[in-house]
Design a protein around this nucleic acid. Structure first.
Lengths: 192, 192, 192, 192
DNA sequence: AATGAATGAGTGTTCATTCAT
DNA sequence: TATGAATGAACACTCATTCAT
């Protein structure tokens, strides 16, 4: 075998990533029950059996997708931004601009948002305990003190904000022609 | 004959409605593939076979639910409201109030909105050709002329508006504790 | 209730006979597995439940039909004829004539023959142990001694004979236009 | 690719043939309704699912069995024989001898005859329009002119002849111990 | 390692049987 | 007594998973 140990490992890692990435959009669109392994394999362009070389089961693959779609990075960014000595208005504008850009250009982000939100909905209980909601709520509170953000329950406002980001992601996944969410709209959700 | 013709027909109609109504929540929450006929029957409180006395197949039941969730009534109402000699601001406030109320109290409406929107998303092409979007866009145009509604593509604004109604319906179906959408929030989506 | 005990009993007996008679043709044509109780009831012109007031189960009804289709009468007749001081040729001609007549005119007989033969076939083992075969074989033996019947295994010849009667009955049940079996043909099966 | 295209196609064809062949006996014996897919699969020695890789449904498999049991070959042979410059007596003797041999040795033929005849019976209308009946009737006509075949409706005689072949096939399928039809008996059905 | 034909557990559907009327 | 809507056990069918190649 001409391949080195290293190359071999790399190839395995590449295939695993490819399956995860291409599966996630499928699961995000169709849900778990309506996604057939045979269709998935065809969509990825590999044999059905190959999936089982990288994942124990359909359930396992789904779990890995959920795990890989964590929002730790986003939460970290938001925390950092929250601590900066800036007016809330600016912070919110920055977030909205990034959202607009990523929703427009970054398909991986679109899929991630969709999966994350669907996970959140399936938790059935307190949607507001999510870190992302809490961090945005903090910035909102700051804005309310500064008079730039509307008076209302900060968590409720955060929910509305992220909900609209999710909605846009959903439309990206399903509908061809549609007007992408603008930073302006996002800002208006929160600010006077 | 143990029952009159009339009673018999009525009972059949009642059972059919009951199946449709109680199934719709299940399908709206879990989608087609994750909904088992056995669970459905248990949830409705009837035998599995009974479903097949009223619907040819699981697929057929799903289709009937989709058909029964049409938005003709809502479109009609919106058309009437659109023609009234009122400022757009008042019209929009009326719509928002009704949405707040029905999202809060009318579970059938919540399910209907969910199914309708999912159907819309699955159409894959032009989401904006829907009557509901068009009618609201007309009122938005009026508002823009009157200076009460923000300057932006009316169909895009209508999309944002209905999207938030859908989001609230989704949360109603999935999450126990959450802050219901307020008329105030809906108004702020459109008005300056 | 104006009906006497006697009348009531008579009515039950009538209904039972009606079900047996009308079911037998259905089972003879379609077999057990391809006969649905719902179709059967419709064919008889009664409700499904009514069948279960007279028979424990579909299996039981089928059994009763089988029992009612016994060949004791035929065997008795054949035995009597066998003992008469007549040439075998005459005996066989008499049998053939009766078969021709009954196959032509007596639908109950047609159904009975069909069911009896199918029962015989399902026994899987020795078809030749049936009384009807044995009795005819005796007459055949007599004929062979007298030189009027062809030389061959009497049970085999009896089998051929009854087989042709069965075939004719089958065609009666299934095919509209067909040439009924003649006594002449039956005679030729056995006699020189 | 673990197998060549050619090998793969061949294997699929083989499995399909195997299912068809082994199913046909089951259906011929039990009919459609009394044949369970689970039993069938066990009998063939494959998994239930495998059947559905080659046939859309139980009904489809049944149809394919019926289609595969055509009598074109037999008709062709009979047509050729009919045209030969031989006395009808010789022709009939040849047919009878072949029937005796194939009924004795060729199980596929036995099953085919059974299915073909059952199909013929289910047509409900004119049984005599079948090619096999017509071709034999032609030879019978020739025989009647030559004085070797009994005077009677040729199609009726052909019906009796094929009927006895069918009867023998039926007995082959159902009954273990029975006297196989002889060419001599078949000949006597037609010839003086 | 990759494949896809084969498998059988699990789900959809039918139909013999029950039972309220 | 007669009925046919309702039932669920049994059967048809699908699809996640395995495994020979």
């Amino acid at each position: 075998m001409p391949k080195t140990e290293e190359q071999c490992k790399q190839m395995r890692e590449d295939m695993r990533s490819r399956i995860l990435e291409r599966s996630s959009i499928y699961f995000a669109r169709n849900g778990f029950g309506d996604t057939k392994i045979s269709d998935l394999a065809k969509h990825i362009g590999i044999g059905q059996g190959t999936i089982y070389m990288y994942f124990k089961s359909k359930e396992d693959l789904f779990e890995e997708i959920r795990k890989s779609a964590d929002n730790k990075d986003e939460v970290k960014k938001l925390k950092l931004l929250g601590k900066l000595p800036l007016p809330a208005r600016v912070k919110i504008e920055k977030i909205s601009e990034e959202m607009e850009k990523r929703l427009r250009d970054d398909e991986e982000f679109v899929v991630k948002i969709t999966i994350l939100t669907q996970l959140l909905l399936e938790k059935e209980d307190d949607i507001y305990s999510d870190e992302l909601y809490k961090e945005l709520a903090n910035i909102i509170k700051q804005g309310q003190k500064e008079g730039s953000v509307v008076k209302d329950d900060p968590l409720y406002l955060a929910d509305i904000y992220w909900g609209n980001v999710y909605l846009c992601a959903l439309k990206k996944l399903f509908v061809k022609k549609h007007h992408t969410l603008t930073a302006e709209t996002l800002n208006r959700l929160l600010m006077v």
